[in-house]
């Protein structure tokens, strides 16, 4: 089984080196590709020195465009499993085996690492409005997917060959995490969640501001709405 770790990174020279080393330690047989999303710092060099393959985008595409580059590589080069791990260090590579175990043992095509079950233990905290938004999205996505999904915004994921093919062909822009789950469900794929623990950011700045959060909600709700137009109830999965 060929495994690829996709690490999107934008100006993460302070964190990406450790992320790559930890993945290698955890997973010596896998390949690691860092997608440098047009960084202005030494992200590419740090990642290459840590032993990762580095694909350097000519300009900033945003997280969606960066991650899709990884899925295109995974598809082109025949990888059986692709995992997404953020380059900022908040996803813990030592949690990877949980995702991969679920993906290979269960019938699911896409496994999302969710932080909420282990939240207390890891000391993860977020603002009230952010939690509210996450709840709304979680409720909506759960209804569409057909079972409970708690952490729709987690970018810590494992995908099998079918999900790799879907994401290589179609991947949302801007803030893709929620939309990608809906897209997978609409494409007839099975989605599962696995509890994982996460860390606070190792370095760099979070991009979340109130205005961006509002835009995020509107944009994601619109995208989900558009994806669901023409839905035929009772034929879930028939197209795949």
């Amino acid at each position: 089984m060929k495994l690829l770790a996709i690490v999107p990174a934008y100006n993460e020279e302070g964190a990406v080196g450790d992320v790559v080393r930890e993945i290698r330690h955890e997973w010596p047989d896998g390949e690691i590709v860092v997608i440098d999303d047009g960084s202005g710092d030494a992200t590419s060099q740090v990642a290459a020195l840590a032993g990762a393959r580095v694909v350097r985008l000519p300009f900033n595409l945003g997280i969606g465009g960066a991650v899709q580059t990884g899925y295109r590589i995974a598809w082109d080069e025949g990888f059986d499993v692709a995992v997404q791990i953020d380059g900022d260090g908040q996803h813990r590579p030592d949690q990877l085996p949980k995702l991969i175990a679920r993906l290979t043992e269960g019938p699911e095509n896409l496994v999302v690492g969710t932080r909420f079950v282990a939240e207390e233990a890891s000391g993860f905290r977020s603002s009230r409005s952010r939690r509210g938004g996450i709840k709304i999205l979680s409720w909506l996505v759960s209804r569409i997917v057909g079972h409970r999904v708690t952490d729709t915004t987690s970018g810590f994921r494992a995908a099998d060959r079918l999900a790799i093919e879907l994401f290589a062909a179609h991947y949302p822009h801007d803030y893709p995490e929620v939309e990608a789950i809906v897209m997978a469900a609409r494409g007839g794929l099975q989605v599962a969640e696995v509890p994982v623990s996460m860390r606070a950011r190792a370095a760099g700045e979070s991009s979340i501001t109130p205005l961006r959060s509002a835009y995020y909600m509107v944009k994601v709700l619109l995208a989900i709405g558009v994806l669901c137009i023409g839905r035929r109830p009772g034929r879930e999965g028939a197209g795949a």
């Binding site: 093919e165 609409r186 494409g187 197209g239 795949a240």
Partner: peptide, 18 residues
Amino acid sequence: GAPQMTRGRRRFPRLARS
């Protein structure tokens, strides 16, 4: 070259979008 991908629309017909 890369392996040939079935055109997205036919492979995932319910995502007739892109």
